[in-house]
Write a protein that binds this DNA or RNA. Structure first.
Lengths: 203, 203
DNA sequence: TAACTTTGTAAGTGATTACTTACATCAAGG
DNA sequence: CCTTGATGTAAGTAATCACTTACAAAGTTA
């Protein structure tokens, strides 16, 4: 009988970086941020602690890389929706629903974002977080303004305030997800929020 | 010439507990959660690290005591407003404005709440956080329902969803406060949010 | 005043942290 | 085949963590 012993195979740095980032999110969601140590990280991937530092200079750099991924992937996706040629109402629906989808799919990320915001005084990190927050706000504002310019929505509505209120949707969804371990929230959630938004926008 | 050397005077445990809790919030706001160590805590108060453990069994117990203060003080205040005999519209205004006030006055607390929620798997802590969140939701729902029963507000509005949307207000205010170091937000903020809420509630 | 409890300190404790070092092994190119 | 650079490991490192211990001194009560 031949026994194959699985040994850690060599991978290029890009692949490893992806694995490490994914493991960070997994740990945060399953065990909480407190258990996000480089030791646990290495154990989760099945490599040595030293290997991690081959692919990232510091632990903080891993966090930064993840947050920059959010900036490109998530915000990029929202930008596409907001600047598409669809009707404003349809854009708004896609915008809200894909936000809700992203946040429920990537529960670890959102905990990471808000916790890092309060933990760190790292300015680079804070400024990226500010960008993510403000980009969402200005993209949703663009949709509101397009609908108002078109004449379908109320031009009296204070867009800035509405965008602020909108931002509460993803954020409080997060809180619920954290506190209720993701059990709540069916896929109707975004449609419910959409209908409230539409009532606010009605002339 | 006589020189008086100021030495740490003995205080009763209750006084010290108050000082310790206040110092925790100060540290969180000025230096971030990362620097909330028992060493820094002792230094900030001007006592020894050992003395802290005379008044609280563990560091976690300090956090718990603070969160329980929020439950009694903040939620207690909101409960008084929600169950008062004022008009629903007036209650809603007081409710939103005193929430905004509390959160801006106690910036350290809110960072603590949300960070602990994602950090810890401590069930006692999580359950208290859930209570704080759900109490706010059900108290604001009560105001909505009273206004609907009275006939002033739209009975078609889905109260549960509206309460969820409402919860976004304090939560996203927090994010702004964290990211912008409390520079934004004048005292009109709650009135702006109130007027959006009122449009949603209009028949 | 004597006995006892409470509040304080200084100097530890072992555990854990992010990160480093010395060295092995693998893949690729000349 | 041999060199070279990238990727891996085991076993460290000093620093920091929450918390303890042994003891002193102050306050209280008898």
């Amino acid at each position: 009988m031949i026994t194959y012993i699985k040994v850690m195979e060599r991978q290029n740095s890009e692949t490893r970086q992806g694995q490490i980032k994914q493991a960070v999110l997994d740990i945060i969601y399953t065990d909480g941020l407190k258990n996000l140590s480089t030791r646990n990280l290495a154990k989760r991937i099945g490599m040595s602690e030293g290997a991690i530092f081959r692919h990232f200079a510091t632990k903080q750099d891993i966090i930064l890389a993840i947050i920059q991924d959010v900036q490109t992937d998530f915000i990029g996706q929202l930008r596409k929706i907001a600047t598409s040629s669809l009707e404003p109402k349809e854009r708004l629906q896609k915008f809200i629903c894909s936000t809700v989808q992203y946040l429920t799919d990537n529960k670890g990320i959102t905990m990471l974002l808000f916790s890092e915001a309060s933990h760190n005084n790292d300015e680079q990190l804070k400024s990226t977080l500010r960008q993510i927050f403000n980009n969402q706000k200005s993209l949703v504002s663009k949709i509101f303004l397009d609908g108002i310019a078109e004449g379908t929505w109320d031009e009296e509505i204070p867009v800035e305030n509405l965008a602020m209120l909108y931002m509460g949707i993803p954020v409080s969804l997060n809180i619920e997800l954290i506190l209720n371990r993701g059990e709540s929230q069916n896929d109707n959630f975004c449609k419910k929020m959409l209908s409230l938004m539409l009532k606010l926008l009605k002339r």
